[in-house]
Simulated assay, not measured.
Amino acid sequence: MSEPEDDSELFRSAIGPVRPLATQPEAPRKPAPRPRARMREADERAAWSEFRHAMHDPLLDPGDVSSHRRDEVPPRVLARLRKGEYAARDELDLHGLTVAVAESLLREFLREAIAAGTGCVRIIHGKGRNSGGLPVIKNLVDRMLRQRADVLAFHSAPPAQGGTGAVLVLLKHR
Rank of each mutant, 00 (worst) to 15 (best):
L60V: 06
L145G: 03
L78N: 03
G165C: 08
D43L: 15
S49T: 14
G96E: 04
A113C: 13
R89E: 15
T98L: 01
V136R: 02
R148T: 12
L21W: 07
L60W: 00
R34Q: 12
E103C: 05
F11E: 11
I137L: 07
P28N: 07
K172R: 14
R122A: 10
L97N: 04
M144T: 14
S2L: 05
A160G: 05
P74M: 03
C120F: 03
E91A: 14
G165S: 06
S8G: 06
R82I: 15
R148V: 12
H125G: 04
L97V: 12
D93V: 15
G165E: 01
D43P: 00
L168V: 13
G119I: 02
N130G: 07
R19D: 06
E3A: 11
P33L: 11
V73C: 04
G119K: 10
G133L: 09
P4Q: 08
A88F: 04
R34C: 02
P135T: 09
S2A: 12
L140A: 05
S156P: 04
L21E: 14
I123Y: 01
I137T: 06
I15T: 13
H125D: 03
E26K: 09
E112C: 06
R111C: 08
V151S: 06
D90S: 11
R45N: 10
F154N: 05
I114R: 12
Y86H: 13
R34P: 09
R89W: 04
Q147S: 15
N130E: 10
R89Y: 03
P62K: 07
C120E: 01
A37Q: 11
C120K: 01
D64W: 00
E72I: 06
G165V: 12
V151A: 05
F51M: 13
S13Y: 03
N130P: 00
V167I: 06
I123V: 15
